[in-house]
Design a protein around this nucleic acid. Structure first.
Length: 257
DNA sequence: TCATCCCTGTGG
DNA sequence: CCACAGGGATGA
């Protein structure tokens, strides 16, 4: 479910609630996550809450609690348990952070160092992009979604970025023209920042919610994702759906070449 | 570079 | 009933 803008929204919402606060207890309501509790020396102060790629990182001093929400997870703050399948509860004096995850694909680990194999964040200076693209024959959409190449982009935003850049998702990364790479360099941060400004994307199913249950407002701005058969906002041709790398892929065959 | 699997829920 | 879902690790 959550890509960079959604994870960032959750982290920003939780940060003032947990930073400098004391983590009192951890309850695992899922056998897959029972290893988290005994790996911690409680109580412990949360020194910082950060995001890297699609990971949420609780800095506990000598340890790091690393949470990845995968497809259906979210982090919610509350005085009591929220609706839904609560897998993990992090107790603080004034409330708790709940990991809610119906599909149980989300992960939580306690480590000494974060060692996810992540590429650079998709903001700031992207001048490394042309060189990086040259080395790969992967379809550009799969390249954008490969977290080792660039961190934080998932299925929704890959589709939206490529639409904005006017590039067919199947094009090999190394085959992009310089002008196309430049459009990509612009589209990546533009799309992600726009989504961030709307607090992420909540699709009509309402799975994604912010830390206090808010919906993200970016769904209405999606140009192609989830819009098979609807008119392309630029040219009016019907948006097409195909399978690429096993994932549903939306694009405008007219505007993206 | 692929299919497959991990899980559960929802919608056609 | 089957198809599909905001992700990613794994093994062929």
């Amino acid at each position: 479910m959550p890509e960079l803008p959604e994870v960032e929204t959750m982290v920003q919402g939780l940060r003032p609630l947990v930073e400098g606060e004391t983590l009192l207890a951890v309850e695992a309501h899922d056998p897959k996550l029972v290893h988290v509790r005994p790996a911690l020396d409680l109580p412990v102060e949360v020194r910082a809450l950060a995001r890297r790629g699609k990971y949420a990182l609780f800095d506990l001093g000598d340890r790091l609690l690393v949470i990845h929400l995968r497809m259906s997870g979210r982090l919610a703050w509350g005085a009591s348990a929220p609706e839904g399948r609560v897998r993990l509860a992090l107790r603080f004096p004034d409330g708790a952070v709940y990991l809610v995850d119906p599909r149980r694909l989300g992960t939580a680990e306690v480590v000494r160092e974060f060692k996810g194999e992540l590429g650079p964040e998709p903001f700031g200076d992207l001048s490394w992009l042309p060189t990086a693209l040259k080395g790969s024959r992967m379809p550009i959409k799969l390249w954008l979604m490969d977290q080792r190449k660039i961190a934080g982009i998932g299925n929704i935003y890959a589709a939206e970025i490529l639409f904005r850049a006017g590039i067919d998702p199947r094009r090999p990364a190394r085959g992009l023209e310089p002008a196309e790479v430049r459009r990509l360099e612009n589209a990546i941060p533009e799309v992600l920042q726009a989504a961030l400004a709307e607090a992420g994307t909540t699709l009509p199913d309402g799975v994604y919610q912010g830390p206090n249950g808010e919906r993200g407002g970016f769904a209405v701005e999606l140009s192609v994702y989830g819009r098979e058969g609807e008119p392309c906002p630029t040219c009016g041709a019907p948006v097409q759906r195909m399978i690429l790398g096993g994932r549903g892929t939306y694009f405008c065959p007219c505007c993206q070449r």
